[in-house]
Design a protein around this nucleic acid. Sequence first.
DNA 1: TCGCTTTGTGTGGGAGGGGAACAAAATACG
DNA 2: CGTATTTTGTTCCCCTCCCACACAAAGCGA
Lengths: 408, 408
Amino acid sequence: MTQIRTRPERGRSALGPALELVHTGRAPTRAVLTAELGVTRATAGAVAAELQHLGLITVDASPTTGAASQGRPSHRLGIAPDGPVVLAAQVHADGYRAALVGLGGQVVATTPGCGTVDADPAQVIGEAVAAGAGLLAGTGRRCVGAGLAVPSAVAEPDGTALNPLHLAWPVGAPVRGIFRDCLAEAGVRAPTETGFTGNDVNLGALAEHRHGAGRGSRHLLCVATGHRGVGGALVQGGRLHSGSSGLALEVGHLVVEPQGRRCHCGSRGCLDVETDPLAFLEAAGRTPGPESSLLHQSTELLRGAYESDESVRAAAHRLIDLLGLGLAGLVNILDPDRIILGGLHRELLRVDEERLREVVAERSLWRRGGAVPLLSCTLDHNSLVGAAELAWQPVLDDPLVLQEDVPC
Amino acid sequence: MTQIRTRPERGRSALGPALELVHTGRAPTRAVLTAELGVTRATAGAVAAELQHLGLITVDASPTTGAASQGRPSHRLGIAPDGPVVLAAQVHADGYRAALVGLGGQVVATTPGCGTVDADPAQVIGEAVAAGAGLLAGTGRRCVGAGLAVPSAVAEPDGTALNPLHLAWPVGAPVRGIFRDCLAEAGVRAPTETGFTGNDVNLGALAEHRHGAGRGSRHLLCVATGHRGVGGALVQGGRLHSGSSGLALEVGHLVVEPQGRRCHCGSRGCLDVETDPLAFLEAAGRTPGPESSLLHQSTELLRGAYESDESVRAAAHRLIDLLGLGLAGLVNILDPDRIILGGLHRELLRVDEERLREVVAERSLWRRGGAVPLLSCTLDHNSLVGAAELAWQPVLDDPLVLQEDVPC
DNA sequence: TCGCTTTGTGTGGGAGGGGAACAAAATACG
DNA sequence: CGTATTTTGTTCCCCTCCCACACAAAGCGA
């Protein structure tokens, strides 16, 4: 049949990479897109037109380019203001938070943190999904997926939470299944399979890699504390290193203080128990408050009293030395090109970056840790944005999934 | 121009994956190749014909299939007996070894181990290359690349040896540059850039993944001893995890015995000094011989006296416990689906697999180490074969590089 | 011998992208 | 102010690659 071609039919297989370039902010104009994709201008034009037609990006023809060099100014690429969104949810010690996240990691709408903590994961996740569905109803935007961040290792391929932190959840709760059930119940539909679920530190690392301090890194290591314990994540070539069963980067049990305190893992002096907020408060001689406020309490103390209080400074130095030793061990094994710190570790970096850098250099082989940049997290709600990244992934892999007849 | 097509022009982009399937033994017949590639029979046929025309594989039309099920028997795919080879070389404590390696990891020809140890890396590498060139002259086969394995971490992108073990080499010797110079001097040419150089344990792991005990693994961890120290490697999705500067998997400095012996890295009780052949001999109360015989001495002792000598058994148990602790730490961080042990560690696995497995399970989080298979190296000269893999890689990525006018 | 199953082979067509030529929109320069 | 230059977008033609399809070939079983 000799059909009438209303839209360009070219540039299909380059569609995903092109969208990813716009999504991560690496293709501000069509000319840059052409160069980054390594295709001809014709192909890049067709790709941009297709993405525009799918309602994902905008192509501004005449932007009165402020900083033009010479020649015809290039069309500016942007993220469609009314494009589709994904539903992102996060469960934490105090409850949950839900949000709608568009391309580019922009949080379109979010609930305030809501305080529901329950022994039944279906309870909290159900409320979070309901809140997200409410946000979705508020905007007229299409939903193309959903992602959930939980403060626990998530085992693959089952999607079960192995060590829910600060939560009274049963060990091994099938959080992904619960999340998907809740989505179905709330009537949240997506053009592809969705309901992705992951560990919050992992997802935060993914978000930092795409939209934050980790941009451009090829081997990004993230280490962060919550209220208790230490989590890690590695983003390699743009993808999370999850290991064979989703449980990689459990970095909390590196031994950093051989004569240190007992850890529930059976060893002594693990990173988990020597560098978390509780360890800091105890080292500084403070009385720890309730578990779900440990992070706040410790960062406030560190920020407020590091200069003035000798015991706080000594505690900080102790944690910096131990953290540095742990990071050096990870440098030896993973050889990252950048390290991002979160939670209390980010504050430790702030108060004495020099000391931490020196310890990492000194305790790594050939001092190569000294060449690895140490940075702070830069995104608000990076776990939430990371959960959204999971949900966006099918679209980034093949934007044409949106072409199918709109389901809902 | 209306050219005459003498050969099928189809199936170009699938050429690399197809060759890799034959290379790794995963496509014994054309029908399997069709299924594995996920293409039509027509395409697979064109691909096979093209590879055959390039002189890389054979396609046996009527093999009188012994184990036929039903239907028309499929053509059998094999590696061309007179196909191209790569030059592989390995430097070790006692000297060097050179070989020619064909597709499928088959060692076509090899020199016996030759005993040249010199403070000048150019000396040994030059002799190894000359020996390889001699082998090459002996066969009439085409050379498509060269690879070198050295007992040292190799820093990228410079290709310098940072910690040559058992060798009097200067630290930071530019081994890849030296290797390439030697190749040029010996007149060894290849259709692509070549002269790849890597760490011997890393390359051994790569070889085991493609042709040995690691086949089919998606997250393969290898840990092995030489005469002194412990090396590690991770093969992920078929590629070596080298980290951002080639120095990943320096696993020797995980702390496994907090009160243990001093290590040159500044810490105490590193895997490097607690589980290597020297540590074993000392623990068993034996007098260590010359450094370049430590591995042989320790494995002989372990094999011969484990059953009969109480002190040997106790030493073995001590090393197994420490190794298990180190492996458990690596399981926590890397989450492999298989672990392969080499050198003395392989012998430790042999004498008491049960004990090692139990320690790994017990000391890993959620006992998940117990689910990871522990295996021995299965290939002879796996570092040599791994060096050949590096050299084969450009051809596996795009077999058409061989189509260019034959240079030499 | 006739099905049935599986595999190999040829043909047409469609998808997707490269390349060249041309048009458009800015700056540089006289 | 007009022209040359530079850079970008667009259109058209062509080539490459692969799938779908039809058909042939080679085994097994009744």
